[in-house]
Design a protein around this nucleic acid. Structure first.
Length: 321
DNA sequence: AATAAGGACAACCGCTCTCTA
DNA sequence: TTAGAGAGCGGTTGTCCTTAT
């Protein structure tokens, strides 16, 4: 096996790091900074290659890293960003303070992807609304057949045809769009219809919020209305959201990695005093995405009260036909 | 209680990009 | 202009732990 150029002449240790090695690395970087990684191991008294030291520091030892499981908000943000950026883990991790690209990637591969695969393979493979030119590296995709919304995977920018006023701004967690140079509001909530309290089950899909077009007016008198979105059409009966069609922007040709979650898990809790049912709230962040304690405003966006969250009562996903 | 299977996550590999001489 | 070194990134593998049988 070939060694890295930085450790060609050294006999390097491999595998898991011992506490003693960690301590040496921490002590050295704390005192002197990492400087040139290739020369660090010798200076720090470590039998490792510089690359290994860098990885260990960045992914595990750095003091500002957040350890522990992902919160529902983090999970939702990862899902959203993966849908937009694809497997750009470093860029996704930048929107999650204290999380590393490796951590996000592992979380995606071990938790989210499996869930999406098991839930969505049919919905995605039969979706008529996915428009993608087949090249994940250079491609553009259009969002749900809306030719005016395109995302360049090279420039990582979403282009909207016209500026859309942020009536109900929503930066979704730590995502600050103006910092990431998207040049557009990726996520917007419309002026919401009067929200009916969920009856006995609710669903939430963080991707519902992607690409929402706020221009369409809601008419509470009309019995069935569709709000087209970037990733889904949201169906209303009266003022109750009954569910999106599951179509989402993707530019990864791997069908397994381009899944989006479908809102097929019953979720319960107490949101702004509105009780709702959950079949699996104790499972993991993904199944608990909409769950917040009572009287708990959505923690990342002071502009979006919880009662703007969207609910549906249908126990299955809806496809545009 | 023993063993197999699966999940989670740390670490490695190889490629690409950037910088500099 | 170009080659080499360092750094960064994404995909993959290996290892340990938990759960199921």
């Amino acid at each position: 096996m070939r060694n890295h150029s930085c450790c060609n002449k050294q006999k390097v240790k491999r595998g898991l790091w011992s506490p003693e090695e960690d301590e040496k690395l921490i002590n050295y970087i704390t005192a002197y900074g990492h400087g040139c990684w290739s020369s660090l191991p010798k200076l720090a008294g470590l039998q490792r290659c510089g690359k290994s030291c860098r990885l260990r520091w960045l992914n595990y030892l750095k003091p500002d890293l957040k350890r522990g499981s992902f919160s529902p908000q983090e999970a939702a943000l990862i899902i959203e960003l993966q849908g937009i950026l694809g497997n750009k883990w470093a860029q996704i991790a930048k929107q999650l303070p204290g999380r590393t690209d490796n951590e996000v990637k592992n979380f995606w591969n071990s938790s989210i992807k499996k869930k999406l695969i098991s839930h969505n393979v049919h919905a995605i493979t039969t979706s008529p609304d996915m428009h993608y030119n087949g090249n994940s590296e250079e491609g553009f995709f259009s969002l749900n057949a809306n030719p005016n919304w395109t995302l360049s995977s090279q420039q990582d920018q979403l282009y909207l045809p016209t500026p859309t006023p942020m009536l109900h701004g929503f930066d979704h967690g730590d995502l600050k769009l103006d910092q990431t140079n998207y040049g557009a509001n990726l996520v917007q909530f419309p002026t919401p219809p009067p929200m009916a309290a969920p009856s006995n089950s609710s669903f939430y899909d963080p991707l519902w919020s992607l690409g929402y077009q706020p221009h369409e007016k809601f008419d509470p008198n009309q019995e069935l209305q569709n709000f087209s979105t970037g990733g889904a059409t949201q169906h209303y009966i009266g003022n109750k959201l009954i569910g999106p069609s599951i179509t989402a922007p993707h530019y990864d040709e791997n069908p397994l990695s381009s899944m989006i979650p479908k809102p097929c898990e019953n979720i319960s809790g107490n949101c702004c005093g509105m009780p709702y049912l959950c079949a699996s709230q104790d499972l993991d962040p993904l199944s608990r995405l909409p769950y917040f304690p009572a009287s708990f405003d959505y923690p990342h966006d002071p502009y979006v009260p919880n009662n703007h969250m969207e609910y549906m009562d249908m126990p299955s996903c809806h496809h545009r036909t």
